[in-house]
Amino acid sequence: MSDEELYAMCIWVDADACPGAIKDVLYKTAKRMDIEVVLVANQPMHIPRSDLIHLITVPHGADVADDKIVEMMQVGDIVVTSDIPLAARVVEKSGIAIGHRGEVFDDNTVHSRLAARNMMDQLRSAGVETSGPSPLGQKDVQIFANALDRTLTQCFRKGIQ
């Protein structure tokens, strides 16, 4: 058996900005589907006691958690993040990026979202006031949970796990 055949898929979480309701969905998914969830953060946080749920704490600094996730993830892993540049890096490395609102990013969608993000940054730099995302609601959490389940089901059907 090759190393690839022995490799079990992992869900990586950009944990510093991940809403608690999304983390709760991930904890339940880890238990229900027997899949490892690794949270990466630059500050300590409480996680449930489980052999399937782990926390990696990295030093403070721009993109340190993102760099650690990209370094450690494998092809086919899932990364949960609202950070579009991180999602783009994950997709480039043949991972699957899912946003907190259930967006599953692929090569086309992540680059269009990255372009939109960059345009909004330019507008803000020019002094234009822009609104941020609306607060995460229960409907958003359900959309995320459904997208995660669909993605995991597709991965298991392809034989990744």
Rank of each mutant, 00 (worst) to 15 (best):
R157F: 06
Q43N: 07
H100C: 03
S125M: 11
M33A: 12
A65P: 05
A88R: 10
D121T: 10
N146R: 14
A115C: 03
G102Y: 01
N118G: 07
I35P: 06
R101A: 06
R32V: 13
Y7M: 05
Q122Y: 06
L26V: 03
M1V: 12
V91R: 01
D67T: 09
N118Q: 12
R124C: 06
H111Y: 10
G137P: 01
I160R: 14
P19R: 05
G159F: 10
L39V: 05
T109W: 00
I160K: 13
D149M: 08
L123N: 04
F156A: 12
D16S: 07
V25C: 07
A21N: 09
A17F: 11
A15V: 08
G99T: 09
C155I: 02
D3H: 11
V75F: 04
D63T: 04
P44E: 15
E103Q: 15
D14C: 04
A87L: 03
P133R: 14
P44K: 13
I22S: 02
Q138L: 11
R117K: 09
I84N: 00
V79E: 00
K158H: 12
S82A: 15
R124W: 04
C155K: 14
V70M: 11
P85G: 07
L152K: 03
V79T: 09
H100V: 05
P135R: 14
D51M: 06
L26R: 07
C10W: 01
I53P: 03
L6H: 10
I11D: 10
A15Y: 08
E103A: 09
D67S: 13
R101I: 05
A147F: 01
V70K: 10
A126Y: 02
E4A: 11
C10T: 08
K158G: 03
D24M: 11
V25P: 07
G20Q: 14
D14T: 12
N108S: 12
R150S: 09
G61H: 03
K28T: 15
K23Q: 12
G76E: 08
S50Q: 10
A97D: 01
V38N: 14
D67L: 13
T151Y: 04
L136S: 01
A147T: 10
F105N: 02
P85W: 04
I160E: 10
M119I: 14
L152Q: 01
E36W: 01
P135F: 05
S131L: 13
S50D: 06
Q122N: 11
D3N: 12
P19S: 09
A97L: 02
L136P: 01
S94Q: 15
T81I: 06
S134Y: 04
D63P: 02
L55P: 06
W12D: 01
L86D: 00
R150H: 11
C10D: 01
D107V: 08
D106W: 01
K93Y: 00
I53A: 08
V40E: 11
N118C: 02
D66V: 01
K68G: 00
A8K: 15
G61I: 03
E5Y: 08
E4T: 12
